[in-house]
Amino acid sequence: MVENRPILNIVSHIVLILGIAIVALPIWITFVAATHDAVRMTQAPIPLLPGSHFWENFQQTLWGSGLSGTEIAPVWRMLLNSLAMAMMISLGKIAISLISAFAIVYFKFPFRMGFFWLIFITLMLPVEVRILPTFEVVADLGMLNSYWGLSVPLIASATATFMFRQVFLTIPDEMLESARIDGAGPMRFFWDIVIPLSRTNIAALFVILFIYGWNQYLWPLLITTDTDMTTIVMSIKQMLEAAEQSPQWNIIMMTALLAMIPPVFVVVAMQKLFVQGLTETDK
């Protein structure tokens, strides 16, 4: 700090705490709603302090039938689906991006630049804008209602390939020269040198991609019709629709809470990696 101004410091802290209050308010309200019983949640004004029904709601949501009167999978099943999708997307992206970036950086081969541009183009097309034809392709391949259909079309992204390319370019050339003198072939070099040297970048990217995968909404909404394949994030919308008939806000908000916890936990627990991943992938 440049100068000592106690009043300004106090103002700083007040503003930051206010900011946190604004940012946290929706989450707090969600949490509070998840701790009351269904009846209390139909009376305005809704409570602002936690109630005593947290465990009850928790158990009913996670293991019970969930929202009564709807045809949806139990929440634990949806959490499992989300986990599978998020893991397949993030690990799949990391794997194919690592090897393609390795090929592009460390080999000189015909059409190298052609492949590079082909990958570059994909960077430009988020799934939302080519949603209908992509859906048709997946349907034609018989991948609807499967984990493969949920994850594979989202796996190819140029962002990860670009980031790894960037990382590999910062590995000194002498590493490769030294490894060649030591007698390491391409794959050996990849496993023994490149992967260990990119460890933190891989972890950082994993944090970002896990959140990206977990939070997918439109894509799973389109390609899963089977309730067994529903992901937790999708289910919120169905519950909101159901709420118009039979409002059970305590269960809906508990589900929302459960849907938020894994990605929020990942961000908070791996904050340093998360910040690194965020700033690197957008470079």
Partner: peptide, 11 residues
């Protein structure tokens, strides 16, 4: 301040 990033848009 950072964790709303992790909340899915639909949530």
């Amino acid at each position: 301040l950072i964790w709303p990033y992790a909340v899915a848009p639909v949530l």
